[in-house]
Simulated assay, not measured.
Amino acid sequence: MLSSEQRTGVVDNQDCDTYNWFSQRAWVEIDLGALYNNVKQLLKLLSPHTQLMAVVKADAYGHGSVTVAKTVLEAGAKWLGVATVPEGIQLREGGIKAPILILGATHAPEQIQAIAHWQLQPTLCSPKQALVFSNTLEAIKYRSSMPVHIKLDTGMSRLGTNWQEAGEFVQLVQRLPGLAIASIYSHLATADSPDPTVMEQQQQRFEQAIDQIKARDINPPCLHLANSAATLVNPSLHYDIVRVGLAMYGLYPAPHLQNKINLQPVLQLKARITQVKAIAAGTGVSYGHDFIAKKEMRIAVVGIGYADGVPRHLSNKIQVLIRGQRVPQIGTITMDQLMLDVTSLPNLQEGEIVTLLGEQAKESISADDWANQLNTISWEILCGFKHRLPRIAVI
Results as ranks from 00 to 15, higher is better:
170 V>N: 01
170 V>H: 01
170 V>L: 02
171 Q>T: 03
171 Q>L: 04
172 L>G: 06
172 L>A: 07
174 Q>M: 12
175 R>H: 07
176 L>R: 02
176 L>A: 05
176 L>C: 01
177 P>L: 07
177 P>G: 05
179 L>C: 09
179 L>F: 01
180 A>T: 00
180 A>R: 05
183 S>F: 10
183 S>P: 05
184 I>P: 01
185 Y>F: 15
185 Y>N: 00
185 Y>K: 03
185 Y>W: 10
186 S>P: 07
186 S>A: 15
186 S>R: 11
186 S>C: 12
187 H>K: 04
187 H>Q: 03
188 L>E: 00
188 L>P: 04
188 L>K: 01
189 A>S: 15
190 T>R: 15
191 A>V: 06
191 A>F: 09
193 S>H: 11
194 P>T: 02
195 D>I: 12
196 P>Q: 14
197 T>I: 13
198 V>W: 15
199 M>Y: 03
200 E>G: 04
201 Q>P: 13
202 Q>G: 04
202 Q>N: 09
203 Q>M: 13
203 Q>G: 05
203 Q>V: 10
204 Q>S: 08
204 Q>T: 07
206 F>G: 07
209 A>W: 08
209 A>D: 07
209 A>P: 09
210 I>W: 11
211 D>Q: 06
212 Q>H: 11
212 Q>W: 12
212 Q>C: 04
213 I>R: 13
213 I>W: 02
214 K>S: 13
216 R>C: 14
216 R>E: 14
